[in-house]
Simulated assay, not measured.
Amino acid sequence: MMIETSTIDTVMGSTAYDKDGDKIGTVGQVYVDPDDGHAVWASVNTGFFGTSESFVPLENASFDSDGLRVQYDKAFVKDAPRIDVDGELSTEDQEALYQYYGVSSGSTGGAGYTDTADSTDRRDTVGGPGHDTSGPNTDDAMTRSEQKLNVGTQKVQTGKARLRKYVVTEQQNVTVPVQREEVRLEREPITDANVGDAVSGADLSSEEHEVTLTEERVVVNKETVPVERVRLDKDIVTEQQTVTEDVAREEIELEGDDTTARGTGRDRI
């Protein structure tokens, strides 16, 4: 299966998925064979915020409205050799990729599979200037690309909170009313009402009378009672943060010595 040349522009910027359907990242550049123009390699932004790019062969890859699907695992693609995306794959770059993915230059459709000098020169220019989907060997147009800043959020652990119960001892002062009995001496005169009790005994005698006194004493008893329930809960607080990142874009200049051409000798697009 081969990516159609007519769809290459659409492939760039699409989402790349691995063989199990897991998202790998966003397709950056597509590199083509200078001999017949078919797609050979694709660079995929795999890092956070798209800061890292990995190359993946397009052998047996497919493309539809959902995105690009390659025949390799997501983790395997992310661990591919890191190569600068500068519009050209050198011979060393391609050899490192061929060896990592276990494919030959012929199986990926890349030029230079034979030992002839002509084929070697072609392999040196795979994905080079004019071969990244357009150029002098494909058509009369040049593709201008620019980086797009994709900003997302990632949940990370910032700390932990726990509930801990411990015993605190404090003094409390409580005022309690208590009662006690005290002796009071009372005297009463002899009257007709009590004269009988007064003269009922001997005329002269020695006697003792005893009275029992009582008092209240404070008794303290402590009781443990539940007073409240305490639990941990989390609130989500939303705040605005500004992310500043450099993005690169391509610019196309028109250069020429023909002063009769429209505009000046150099126009920038």
Rank of each mutant, 00 (worst) to 15 (best):
T214D: 09
Y31K: 03
V11F: 02
S205N: 07
T153A: 07
N221P: 00
E4H: 04
F48M: 08
T138W: 08
Y31T: 07
V199T: 14
Q94I: 13
V168K: 15
K222D: 13
R231C: 01
A198Y: 12
E253S: 06
T120D: 08
V220F: 14
A16Y: 02
R164P: 01
T26L: 09
T120W: 00
F63C: 06
T153H: 12
D36S: 05
D22G: 04
G47W: 08
Q171Y: 10
T51W: 02
Y72A: 07
A75I: 09
R262F: 09
G25H: 06
V195E: 11
T114D: 15
R268H: 04
N173K: 14
L97A: 03
T91Q: 05
S14N: 02
V219C: 00
Q29D: 04
R187S: 13
E250R: 08
G112A: 11
G110K: 02
Q147R: 03
T214L: 03
S54H: 07
E53I: 06
T158F: 04
S134L: 02
E188V: 12
E207M: 01
V151Y: 01
E170V: 07
H131T: 08
V40C: 13
T214G: 01
V168Q: 13
P177W: 02
A75E: 14
P81V: 05
D132V: 15
V151H: 03
K160D: 12
Q29M: 06
T26K: 08
E255P: 00
D118L: 08
D246P: 05
L254A: 05
I236F: 07
V211R: 08
F49H: 01
Y166K: 13
K19L: 09
V40H: 00
F49Q: 13
Q179L: 04
E4D: 10
S105I: 01
R266T: 09
G25L: 06
V230P: 03
Q172W: 00
A202S: 14
T125H: 04
I83K: 09
Q147K: 01
V247N: 00
T191E: 11
S43P: 05
D18T: 00
A75V: 03
Q71T: 15
D36M: 05
Y100K: 07
I83D: 08
V126C: 11
V219A: 10
D66F: 02
T10R: 11
I236M: 09
K155Q: 13
V218N: 10
S6D: 12
T158E: 12
T264H: 11
S6R: 02
S14P: 04
G25W: 01
L89F: 15
D84S: 11
T138K: 05
L204I: 07
E228F: 02
A39S: 09
L149A: 15
N45Q: 04
T153Y: 14
P34T: 06
Y113E: 15
M12N: 08
T259R: 11
H209E: 14
T244I: 13
T26C: 07
A161M: 05
Y166S: 15
D246N: 10
L68Q: 03
K165D: 08
D9N: 13
V219W: 01
G109L: 06
G152C: 04
E239Q: 12
D86G: 11
D33P: 00
E146I: 02
S6W: 00
T5Q: 12
G50S: 12
G50W: 11
I3A: 07
R164H: 14
D66Q: 15
I24Q: 03
P57C: 06
Y98R: 04
L204M: 06
E146W: 10
T212M: 02
D86Q: 10
